[in-house]
Design a protein around this nucleic acid. Structure first.
Length: 291
DNA sequence: ATGCAGGGCCTCC
DNA sequence: GGAGGCCCTGCA
């Protein structure tokens, strides 16, 4: 009846330690991966359900009921942000002069920025305001369960923006979305009236793309930077949430600086891949700075 | 029980 | 620009 799952296929261009893998899948970039056992996950990549299994010291194997043309590893390597050389990218960060960054990078040596679907990333981060990761995941799971399409393998996709535009706001509120429901509806309406918007953003330079995203209701500087970083592969996007603000004020002795000043410092200090640096800081703060 | 949380928006200064 | 209140919800 259902498509059989493929054999486990190894991922060749990414050999993460488990901490880096976990932090990449479940560290606030993506919200649709679920941990099944100690070292295995199920999740959705694009419109495909995938199972993923890590084995020591640094191997990732995966399987899907609906292999894409070109093969699953290829698609996943794209999803995991594979580029010419992640080594060069890591090396471009100012770790030589920044002991704190060096420490963060050492703790998650294979951390990556995902390349997720932009439209879906927008939806996820519209849900993120004042919410913890677990709550965001719960909201999105409810939304997918009630309004998404069943995918081979059993999980459901998130509803598309076209589908969202047909869903009453009260139904969204029933998915625990609260005031975010209004923003989702407003954005769905905007996107319905502005076909091509999502694609257009992708063609613009960073500053203009960000400005354009900020036209959407519920999207401000932070959310637009998350969407650009995790959905549009713009590594210069540097989202500053309250965690990063506090962390940077502490780690870089910027206690007297405003949010705006800290953001500017980060962009200047970390450079053209500031978003990647931010993810290292974030990962370290979440995992190692617990008091 | 009031307060607060990984944000945006509006108002007022 | 910057500060403060409000928007929902769940949990301490």
């Amino acid at each position: 009846m259902d498509n059989p799952w493929t054999d486990w296929k190894p991922l060749s261009n990414w050999r993460p330690d488990f901490e880096s893998l976990l932090e990449t899948l479940d560290g606030g970039q993506a919200f649709r991966w679920n941990r099944e056992e100690k070292h295995s996950f199920s999740g959705i990549m694009g419109n495909r359900m995938v199972r993923l299994r890590w084995s020591p010291p640094n191997r990732v194997h995966l399987s899907t009921p609906s292999p894409p043309p070109g093969g699953l590893p290829l698609a996943l390597e794209n999803y995991f942000g594979n580029r010419k050389s992640y080594k060069i990218l890591y090396d471009s960060l100012p770790w030589r002069s920044d002991p704190h960054l060096r420490r963060c990078m050492a703790a998650f040596p294979q951390l990556r920025i995902l390349r997720q679907d932009p439209a879906e990333t927008l939806l996820c981060f519209l849900c993120s305001a004042t919410k913890q990761i677990v709550q965001i995941k719960e909201m999105l799971a409810l939304l997918a369960d009630r309004f998404g399409d069943r995918l081979p393998g059993g999980m459901k996709s998130l509803p598309s923006w076209a589908q969202l535009s047909q869903i009453p706001e009260s139904d969204l509120r029933d998915c625990k979305m609260g005031f975010r429901a209004r923003n989702i509806k407003g954005t769905a309406r905007f996107l319905a009236e502005t076909p091509g918007f999502i694609g257009e953003v992708g063609r613009l330079p960073y500053a203009e793309a960000r400005e354009k995203l900020c036209q959407l209701p519920g999207v401000g500087k932070k959310v637009s930077d998350c969407v650009l970083l995790f959905g549009y592969d713009r590594l210069e996007a540097f989202p500053v949430d309250t965690w990063i603000l506090k962390a940077m004020q502490r780690r870089y002795r910027l206690h007297d600086r405003s949010h705006r000043q800290v953001a500017r410092f980060g962009r200047t200090h970390f450079g053209e891949s500031a978003g990647l640096a931010q993810q290292f800081l974030f990962a370290w703060e979440r995992n190692h700075a617990r008091k």
